[in-house]
């Protein structure tokens, strides 16, 4: 029996963490290029809405994810035009983007609330899924979960081993220096920002097609902000982002289970737990201020103008 419980907790942890993995890994790439997009929450909501709408009307989940990625990337494009081309302040624009995404998704989704939709089904992995213990533990997830791990691998590889990843990090450390070496700063920052939008959209899509397959106004409930915090506390390293996301997922699941046990603790206090625990653990991991300084993209949030 206890192994069943373990499997249940483990798998729901992974599922609960998956949207964070998408959003935080995407934001990590954006910030490594020196752009601070605080609009993750807004982009996630737009993604969640787009995915739900397409899913409910066509029943096609693949299409739903594509729509989510596209819709959130459009929002990211808006952010990029404002901050990169028009030099608007990144913090203020990012906050505005979150509020805009929140409002727009509530407005467009007002007739969708309560509609039924198809849940993303686990990937059919014949033979593997029937393995004892390992099968239910590892091979009964939906495609998006495996996709998030693939994304983690791809981003780590990209940042560590490829020339393009080196360019991106260079732009994040000093846009002026990168420009003087003939690097296309604007193009790299646009690409990174759009990529971040895309993954935020996927994160949102996972919320409204897998985690809770319905549309509720503001359903990301602060996960965009957690993703942003994860990137900082993980000192801009993909592996730590992954760790933080699973930690957060695990705490969310545990607090649900402990609520079911009927502990005499107010449920509000338990709901706070994942947020507190994640931040405390990650802060403990990276206490050394020099590690942060070495990993933090030095030009983060600073606008770049080629003539100045």
């Amino acid at each position: 029996m206890s192994s069943d419980l373990f499997i249940a907790i483990f798998t729901s942890t992974i599922v609960a963490a998956t949207p964070l993995v998408y959003a935080a890994l995407g934001e990590l790439v954006v910030e490594r290029a020196g752009v601070l997009n605080l609009g993750v929450e807004g982009m996630m909501l737009i993604g969640a809405l787009a995915a739900f709408a397409v899913n409910a009307s066509t029943g096609h989940t693949g299409l739903a994810y594509m729509a989510a990625a596209l819709a959130a990337a459009l929002l990211a494009l808006l952010f990029a035009i404002l901050t990169l081309s028009l030099q608007a302040n990144q913090v203020a624009t990012g906050l505005a983007l979150t509020l805009f995404g929140l409002g727009l998704s509530a407005f467009l989704g007002r007739n969708l609330a309560g509609m039924p939709a198809v849940t993303l089904q686990p990937l059919a992995l014949p033979w593997l899924r029937d393995l004892p213990l390992i099968g239910p533990l590892l091979f009964r997830f939906d495609a998006a979960v495996y996709g998030s791990l693939l994304l983690y691998w791809a981003i780590s590889h990209f940042l560590r081993n490829t020339r393009a990843g080196l360019r991106l990090r260079a732009v994040g450390e000093s846009a002026t220096v990168a420009h003087s070496l003939g690097q296309p700063v604007m193009r790299i920052r646009y690409a990174a920002t759009l990529f971040g939008g895309l993954t935020s959209g996927l994160a949102g899509a996972y919320l409204s097609t897998a985690l809770t397959p319905m549309w509720v106004e503001g359903m990301s409930s602060g996960r965009g902000w957690i993703a942003l915090a994860l990137v900082v506390f993980a000192t801009w390293r993909p592996a730590r982002v992954l760790l933080g996301a699973y930690l957060f997922g695990g705490m969310t699941v545990l607090q649900l289970h402990s609520q079911a046990l009927g502990l005499h603790v107010p449920s509000e206090a338990l709901s706070m737990l994942p947020y507190i625990a994640t931040i405390v653990v990650l802060v403990l991991i990276c206490r050394n201020p020099k590690t942060i300084l070495l990993n933090q993209p030095a030009s983060l949030g600073r606008n770049f103008h080629p003539d100045a």
Binding site: R169, A170, S174, V177, L181, G182, Q183, L294
Partner: peptide, 25 residues
């Protein structure tokens, strides 16, 4: 151009800094 205040990326290695300036990969 060799700049007075160097145009180098502090967190990268020498080889990476040089690779960034080269046309071909």
């Amino acid at each position: 151009m060799v700049f007075q205040h160097f145009a180098l990326f502090q967190t990268l290695t020498v080889a990476q800094n040089i690779a960034l300036a080269l046309e071909a990969d």
